[in-house]
């Protein structure tokens, strides 16, 4: 299979206006991915599937990833006027990267038996702007997997034929696979809490004043 750079160049030529970025992947696995812009994602994927050399006809895996807001602090040397003279002072700057949700697809070719080509699309933010183009019209295999991403991460897929909750019940309102999800309070009944469960039980109890003092009760059956 040709290299990711060649695929990127050819896809950009085939789909005018498409912005494709190569996301490097350090580590021994070496599976870098192509980040597609949301406007042209479907057209690019269509190209990847129908191009005679690539024929990436098998969309094996589709999944979501949640990236929270990140603060990255770095030290910057700034020239400042201190006590009348100009000095170079080290200052820490905090850059805030807003969080986003990501959909990752792993494409293989059953015709040429090569792959994977990893593609990803990113939402604007983690709230109202969590919308992505659906790849279900191109790959049927994405149908249930995109529904799962919607269910667990809350990404709305434009163009999906049947976007409903799939694993949780319909009345459920949270998106449980997000990193900031807090599960419902049912840890207080744990008879022998330990480790993380104990931590969680304590957390939950501190938020429930009516249970205050309950943890001081001695064992009874």
């Amino acid at each position: 299979m040709e290299s990711l750079e060649e695929i990127k160049a050819r896809a950009e030529r085939a789909v005018p206006g498409a912005k494709i970025t190569i996301v490097p992947n350090p580590g021994p696995a070496n599976q870098p991915s192509l980040l597609l812009d949301n406007e042209h994602a479907t057209a690019v994927v269509q190209f990847l599937r129908d191009d005679s050399e690539l024929r990436l006809d098998h969309c094996s895996n589709a999944t979501g990833v949640d990236w929270l807001d990140r603060k990255v602090s770095k030290k910057v040397k700034v020239k400042k006027v201190v006590e009348g003279e100009e000095k170079e002072v080290e200052e820490t700057q905090e850059d805030l990267f807003p969080g986003y949700l990501e959909a990752v697809y792993h494409l293989y070719s059953m015709t040429h038996k090569h792959g994977p080509v990893v593609i990803r699309t990113r939402t604007k933010d983690r709230a109202e702007g969590a919308r992505l183009p659906s790849l279900t019209p191109i790959y049927r295999s994405a149908e249930f997997q995109e529904r799962e991403i919607f269910d667990l991460y809350g990404v709305r897929f434009d163009g999906h034929p049947d976007l409903r909750r799939i694993l949780m019940w319909d009345e459920f309102v949270d998106y449980p696979m997000r990193k900031d999800y807090r599960e419902p309070d049912d840890y207080e009944y744990e008879p022998t809490p330990h480790d993380e469960v104990l931590e969680k039980a304590k957390q939950h109890q501190s938020t429930r004043p009516e249970l205050d003092g309950a943890e001081k009760l001695t064992a009874r059956s």
Partner: peptide
């Protein structure tokens, strides 16, 4: 409800 109190009577164990 998260549990039926008529059926479910868990033991309460001291937590410190």
């Amino acid at each position: 409800p998260p549990a039926n109190p008529d059926v479910f009577r868990p033991p309460v164990v001291e937590r410190t």
